[in-house]
């Protein structure tokens, strides 16, 4: 094969430059700043900084509020990922069986995807509103006094519900296309080999969906950790004090509300390490992933 080349050494660099500039300005530069300021104690009014070494990190892991937020994030991510995957899979399996009006049905399910996270948050606020939210009234009907923004667990519940709801369509689309890429004859062969529909699903359909499922698992964890910011921001309505916070939201609260830039930077460095670990894990797994022909 003939190797295509450039006549000058500068042209390729020039062509790459815009992309590199964007990455440097919007990623490396802020990231470097975060790493750097995580070693400093910032004056709240921006009049100076003092080098404190690893003290920001040390106080982070000694802080009960931070650990509480870390635990909450773990539960939040597990719950959101599990339910958004499980419910989406259920919908996809059901939608896959629909023959008449399948397109309309799928489009309706996909619409939610177009809703921006803060708007989803607002919808959540409306649903769970203290005085007239339909969800609150439903809970009242069951004899439960649902208090969004006041009760820690109620707020957490609303956060999980809205985040799951927001993520369902993406997972649904991927699962549905995954299901439809399973050859019809393979399913028919299973139909002859196995009379139980549920065991057919776990023996044949589910393993063949595994590549899709794994991809979604990673994207959903990322979503639950980072992209739920808008939902949380609207739901806790500027009263983060006694409400559950994810780590990402806590970075924002501590840095921009608490004006503790050093501590907030340390938190974002921890998150960076976490993301890095997840990325490495993902690539390792993707490499080992079985490809079916």
């Amino acid at each position: 094969m003939k190797r295509a080349g450039f006549s000058t050494r500068w042209l390729p660099i020039m062509l790459l430059l815009p992309q590199l500039l964007i990455i440097v300005i919007f990623f490396y530069w802020p990231a470097w700043h975060a790493v750097r300021s995580s070693f400093f104690l910032q004056d709240p009014f921006g009049f100076g900084e003092t080098f404190v070494g690893l003290k920001n990190y040390a106080s982070l892991f000694k802080s009960s509020a931070y650990m509480r937020s870390a635990w909450f994030t773990l539960f939040f991510v597990v719950l959101v990922t599990f339910f958004s995957l499980a419910i989406a899979l259920l919908f996809a399996v059901k939608a896959d069986k629909v023959l008449r009006g399948a397109k309309t049905y799928r489009t309706l399910l996909m619409w939610v995807y177009a809703v921006a996270p803060p708007v989803a948050g607002v919808l959540g606020v409306i649903m769970f509103d203290q005085s007239w939210g339909p969800a609150t009234e439903f809970f009242a009907l069951l004899g439960y006094d649902f208090r969004l923004g006041v009760n820690y667990y109620d707020t957490a519940f609303a956060m999980v519900v809205v985040s799951v709801w927001k993520q369902l369509p993406v997972n649904f689309i991927f699962f549905l296309s995954g299901l439809q890429s399973i050859p019809r004859s393979v399913r028919e062969a299973a139909l002859i080999d196995n009379r139980s529909a549920s065991s057919r699903f776990w023996d044949i359909t589910f393993p063949l969906l595994a590549p899709t499922g794994f991809f979604l698992l990673i994207t959903n964890i990322t979503y639950a950790m980072f992209d739920t910011f808008g939902v949380i921001d609207v739901l806790v309505r500027g009263e983060p004090g006694n409400n559950p916070l994810t780590l990402v939201y806590k970075v924002y609260v501590d840095g921009f509300r608490g004006n503790d830039l050093g501590g907030s930077s340390a938190q974002s460095v921890v998150l960076m390490v976490l993301v890095l670990a997840m990325t490495v894990f993902q690539f390792r797994m993707v490499e080992r992933r079985i490809h079916y022909t």
């Binding site: 050859p183 004859s185 393979v186 028919e188 062969a189 299973a190 139909l191 002859i192 080999d193 196995n194 009379r195 023996d203 044949i204 393993p207 063949l208 595994a210 079985i290 079916y292 022909t293």
Partner: peptide, 30 residues
């Protein structure tokens, strides 16, 4: 009667093997 209960076996045009199972498991699945 369900396909599984008709006491039949079918060979498909594109073989319809279960791609995630070994030959042994493919043959033994039924």
């Amino acid at each position: 009667v369900d396909p599984a209960d008709r006491d039949i076996a079918m060979v498909f045009q594109n073989y319809a093997l279960y791609p995630h199972m070994t030959v042994r498991k493919n043959i033994g699945y039924g």
